[in-house]
């Protein structure tokens, strides 16, 4: 799937973070990547299977996009079964302010197992850095 761009989050090959950018929250994800290293991984299947992977779902999960989002997550979990999924922002967590829409899935956890829910509309970039640190069991520097 073209366009899945992985970040070597700590620059040491230990943790790869990828954004499924669906809506506004993806801009905060981008801000959280400033100063970080792109991983240079062209395909999901090229992920080192022993690495830690965090898949960040940023933004509103519309019914129409549930197929592609599920495909991305399941392909990643095939290569790295322990890949963590983070629902970033209110929409990915529970539908957010669009919970009542005719075309929105009320949170990505309706479809995949979620390891962390980050509230916010949008959350600040710092909130993403904190949760990746926690999932990597690292102390905040």
């Amino acid at each position: 799937m073209a366009g899945t761009r992985f970040w070597d989050w700590y620059g040491d090959g230990s943790t790869y973070v990828v954004d499924v950018g669906l809506a506004c929250c993806t801009l905060e994800f981008e801000a959280a990547t400033y100063g970080r290293t792109p991983a240079g991984i062209a395909r999901i299947e090229d992920l080192p299977s022993r690495s830690r992977v965090v898949v960040v779902i940023s933004g509103t999960v519309t019914d129409k996009l549930t197929g592609p989002v599920l495909t991305i997550v399941s392909r990643i979990r095939q290569v790295v079964p322990a890949a963590a999924v983070v629902a970033f922002g209110a929409c990915a967590s529970a539908g957010g302010p669009y919970w009542d829409s005719y075309s929105v899935t009320k949170g990505i956890d309706q479809l995949v197992a979620v390891d962390a829910y980050v509230p916010g509309c949008p959350p600040p970039p710092d909130a993403l850095a904190t949760i990746v640190d926690e999932l990597s069991e690292r102390e905040r520097v």
């Binding site: 967590s93 529970a94 390891d115 829910y117 509230p119 916010g120 600040p124 909130a127 904190t130 949760i131």
Partner: peptide, 12 residues
């Protein structure tokens, strides 16, 4: 401060 993240949605 922003609201902290949670591992279960109910905790939000």
């Amino acid at each position: 401060d922003p609201v902290a993240a949670a591992t279960r949605s109910g905790r939000l």
